[in-house]
Design a protein around this nucleic acid. Sequence first.
DNA 1: CACCTATTAATACCTAGTACTAACTCAGTA
DNA 2: TACTGAGTTAGTACTAGGTATTAATAGGTG
Lengths: 185, 185
Amino acid sequence: MRLSKKERQQKLLEALEIEPFLTDEEMARRYHVSIQTIRLDRMELGIPELRGRIKDMAEKNFDRVRSLYPDEVIGEVTELTLDVGATSFLEICEEHVFTRNGIARGHHLFAQANSLAIAVVDAETALTATASLRFVRPVQLGEKCVAQARVTQQTGRTQVAVNTFVEEELVFQGVFDVYRAKEDE
Amino acid sequence: MRLSKKERQQKLLEALEIEPFLTDEEMARRYHVSIQTIRLDRMELGIPELRGRIKDMAEKNFDRVRSLYPDEVIGEVTELTLDVGATSFLEICEEHVFTRNGIARGHHLFAQANSLAIAVVDAETALTATASLRFVRPVQLGEKCVAQARVTQQTGRTQVAVNTFVEEELVFQGVFDVYRAKEDE
DNA sequence: CACCTATTAATACCTAGTACTAACTCAGTA
DNA sequence: TACTGAGTTAGTACTAGGTATTAATAGGTG
């Protein structure tokens, strides 16, 4: 049974959401219309051709992969004095929150703080041994987190205290015991 | 000045590493050879055509985006009894480690443990209040982490203890204080 | 009936290739 | 000197998955 134009275009949008790699030919087959009809639909809906869609995805995600796991610090470092202190900035985006309530997932705040604590330690390889965390209040989507790390102890293990603020308000506290690893192990 | 075949092919590989969206035409222009030469080079090196490369990237990253930030638990849940205990599994891949030494970054172990602790709590919205962590030994690329969470206290705040093992060997310990958030806040 | 919307058909053209055949260049060598 | 072979270039036919355009057709409505 054939669908109306509106229904078909709606289905088309939904289908491409899930399977962005459909050719016009395949879509025509699915909805029992000609390939030209599908093309008119794409025109009206402003959907680019298959190759354009593929390329957009590849580019978007190429950038994302580059920026997602920078080897250094999670967030953007704005200040750094080795063995003394450092500051970093992280804006809470879609990918950091529970979709259900828009609250940032704990491990992103932890990641910002922990990676900053490690960056501030002046060593080839620094690793976290222990950490004590306090999530003072939930952080919402869109909030801008400023993490401030201070080295509080240098004898034996290095201790770094990190406080994270959203506009002057403390939202997270962490104390990290960091050690300098030997190169051979 | 023209390069030798070997040099050209080497440069080609490097160029595509950085800019995967180069057409044969563009590459031919860059190295001052004909388009056919570039195609022979791609044959020898086993490099697929532009559209194939773009599609591969798009597909790989499409999957990655889907799996990277699942709204639920980081890692794969293998057991779960609400308010009692749970187990999850996470294999340490490239994206989890410092490229310099192949050691897993702390926040991934934390993410596995923390999200499991939250999942085991039977509530609409559970959030971490405080946590105490011990990174017992560095975890290497390729190691398979099994996190075991047990609810250890239910009066007032819920306490969840998580131990993470690599083949029977304890690598991470965490104690999480989790609270059940009200829906309105 | 004319008119309109939706659909289909047909054609020329495009990009970025594959697959194949043929020719040319040049350096080394018998 | 002529021959050989690797490397390169040229040309042709063909492909997928389209764009852009024009034209024809079907079905319903005032």
